[in-house]
């Protein structure tokens, strides 16, 4: 702004220095808009790569033979197999999540109690499988668990079993494989959360008369719940859409939504039917989140942090 501009403004304002409130407010709005502008490219990308495909999927699910139709949804209501497939998908996801919690939480706890150095070393052990191809890990389980696999060879060699155990191509094998793949997704967020819990809380609990076990259950565990919940939800949601491992280890006995979607889209090119299943899965997942959100208020659990 030129010097004369300032002078004329000053002249206009003479005697009323507080008349600039609207301009100052406008400046603040502009500044906020600029900040928003910084995130605009990212929002656009997210819109294009995440929102549009979902909207497209939603739209496709209402199209049959080129025109609007509820046929795909009607079929899901009519055919009992769909309900069973959805049920078994949610069931196995829940079971895997529970097992992952039972195995992963103690490990994350152990890691959180070690020195940073020792913990990083052990974390690498957690991460190495994480970085290995999903297919490789899944086939590795096949090699270990099958009828003439390593584990059955040992068991029979040691005389512990007479006939090979059925460890894979069934529900058991699917659970083992899925849990193994999912464990890092539980351990990492949980570990990160446990690390941030101030050790003074445990000291305080001890000084107030809590034995180590009671201090853990009354103080440490409740404080770790938000992290554990984050990990568990991540695992659960990932399980809902899991395809490769259950397809390879389930022996065709575990039929999940993802497989049915693959069948519809990949084998029959029925995008509408596949999309409708995707939409139902999405809606059901959101419904579960909503229900969980009502049951446990995360804010309450988090408290001050």
């Amino acid at each position: 702004m030129s010097a004369t501009g300032i002078e004329s403004l000053a002249a206009r304002r003479a005697g009323r220095p507080d008349a600039n409130a609207p301009e100052l407010a406008a400046d603040e709005r502009r500044e906020r808009l600029h900040l928003f502008g910084l995130s605009l490219p990212a929002l656009l990308v997210i819109g294009i790569v995440a929102f549009l495909p979902t909207a497209w999927l939603f739209w496709l699910s209402f199209i049959d033979e080129g025109s609007f139709s509820l046929a795909h949804y009607e079929r899901m209501v009519r055919e009992a197999s769909y309900l069973r497939i959805f049920w078994s998908t949610f069931e196995i996801s829940a079971v895997v999540t529970v097992i992952a919690i039972l195995l992963g939480y103690p490990l994350a706890y152990l890691l959180s109690q070690l020195s940073e150095r020792a913990a990083s070393l052990l974390l690498i052990l957690v991460l190495v499988p994480f970085w290995t191809s999903l297919l490789v890990r899944t086939y590795a389980w096949l090699v270990l668990l099958q009828r003439r696999g390593v584990i059955n060879d040992w068991l029979q060699g040691l005389g512990l079993v007479d006939a090979p155990l059925r460890l894979v191509h069934n529900y058991t094998g699917t659970l083992i494989g899925m849990t193994h793949i999912m464990l890092p997704f539980l351990i990492l967020p949980t570990y990160a959360a446990l690390r941030t819990i101030d050790r003074d809380y445990l000291k305080a609990a001890a000084s107030l008369g809590a034995s180590p076990l009671r201090a853990f259950w009354t103080v440490f565990f409740p404080l770790s719940l938000p992290g554990l919940m984050a990990g568990a939800l991540l695992v659960f949601v990932l399980c809902l859409g899991f395809y490769v491992t259950p397809a390879l280890l389930g022996g065709g006995r575990v039929l999940l939504v993802s497989m049915k979607i693959q069948q519809n889209a990949g084998m029959y090119f029925e995008w509408g039917a596949a999309s409708a299943m995707g939409v139902i899965l999405l809606v059901a997942t959101l419904g579960i989140f909503w229900g969980l959100g009502r049951l446990v208020s995360l804010d309450r659990v988090m408290g001050e942090r």
């Binding site: 101030d198 003074d200 809380y201 000291k203 305080a204 609990a205 103080v219 409740p222 404080l223 309450r300 659990v301 988090m302 408290g303 001050e304 942090r305």
Partner: peptide, 8 residues
Amino acid sequence: QNYALFPH
């Protein structure tokens, strides 16, 4: 020093 009041 930081009071260590239990936030939950």
